[in-house]
Amino acid sequence: MSKPILSLKQFMLKQEVKALYRKIFKAIREVPDKTYQEELKQWTRRDFRSNANQTDEISIRMSLKYGERCLRELETSLSLAK
């Protein structure tokens, strides 16, 4: 069974999600505690997988905003810890 062809808007949205995922994992690598690092990785994977089947653009955008907010909080926490 072949994958459905995405519209340009869907493709761009998918690229935003992938970019956010990579940014989050890059930030997680900066966490000094390896145990906490692993917990954050598991949480991130679980959260992205639970939303992987979303097709509604508004829901996806809301999830992206939530992820961006979490990333900012993580980056702020990391900068304060230094």
Score class of each variant (00 low, 15 high):
I28M: 06
K3C: 06
I28G: 01
A27M: 06
I28S: 05
A27T: 02
T55Q: 14
K9H: 11
S50W: 00
I24A: 02
K23Q: 11
R61N: 08
K9T: 08
L78A: 01
S50C: 04
V31P: 04
Q37W: 04
L20W: 14
A81Q: 15
Q15S: 09
R46H: 11
K3Y: 11
P4C: 00
K3P: 06
I5P: 02
L64K: 00
A27V: 03
Q10L: 05
P4Y: 02
L74N: 01
E38M: 08
K34E: 15
C70Q: 05
K18I: 04
V31H: 11
N53A: 13
D33H: 07
K26C: 01
Y21F: 14
L80Y: 03
K9P: 00
E68Q: 15
N51V: 12
A52D: 14
L80N: 01
N53F: 15
A19D: 15
E73I: 05
E39A: 05
E16M: 07
K41A: 01
V31A: 11
L64W: 03
L78H: 00
L20V: 15
R69F: 09
T55M: 09
E75F: 00
F25A: 00
Q54K: 15
S63W: 09
A81Y: 12
Q37K: 14
L6Q: 13
Q37A: 06
F48I: 03
S59E: 13
